[in-house]
Simulated assay, not measured.
Amino acid sequence: MVAAAIANLLPGLNADEVVNRMIRDYRDGAGSSGGSGGGGQPTTINGWPESFNKLKPLPFKSAASPQEAEDWITHMEKNFEVLGCGDEFKARLVAFKLEGDALQWWKMHKRAKGGDTYMVSCTWTEFRDTFYKRYFPEFEQQHFEREYTPA
């Protein structure tokens, strides 16, 4: 019935092919919600903030100790694990949760690296390493590892 209606409305198109493609697109997750259509994972950044924010990720303003910075990164990684979020979106999502001094620091770092162009290519590993250099320096990480690693 649908095929007949399409054939009448759009002569010259193969109605069965159009219907099959619609069904295939629906099953593959193409749709209007950032590429997440049938409940699958978003395929663009536009689909991720809503899913990410539903988990109520903690904001980050500054850290009184390196442990606070480590805890925030761990919190974010747990959120990403639950979401199944791809590496290409993680840095942009966490940057959205930076506030106050941390946001000012990130804006300056981003500008120095090329602005929005840099953000599109910034990986989670790169963000995390840069964040740690600022809030959890290597000498603190080594001290932390010595203190908490079983002998």
Rank of each mutant, 00 (worst) to 15 (best):
T74R: 15
G38Q: 14
Y26F: 15
T44F: 08
P57K: 10
L103H: 05
D16H: 13
W72S: 01
M108F: 06
K90M: 06
L93D: 04
K54C: 00
E77V: 12
K54E: 07
W72H: 05
Y132R: 13
G34Q: 05
Q141M: 10
E81S: 13
L9S: 09
S121V: 10
K133Y: 05
E77N: 13
G12K: 06
E50R: 10
Y148V: 09
A5R: 13
R111S: 05
G100L: 00
N79A: 12
L58I: 12
M119R: 03
K107S: 05
E145V: 15
F144E: 12
G34R: 07
T117D: 10
M119E: 10
G86E: 14
T74M: 10
G29K: 07
H109V: 14
F60C: 04
T117I: 07
V18M: 03
T117L: 03
L55E: 14
C122Y: 05
Y26T: 11
R111T: 12
D129I: 06
P57Y: 04
K97H: 03
R92I: 02
G39F: 07
A64M: 10
E126Y: 06
M119S: 11
R27E: 13
G84H: 05
Q104I: 09
W105N: 00
E77S: 13
M22P: 02
V120T: 10
F131K: 03
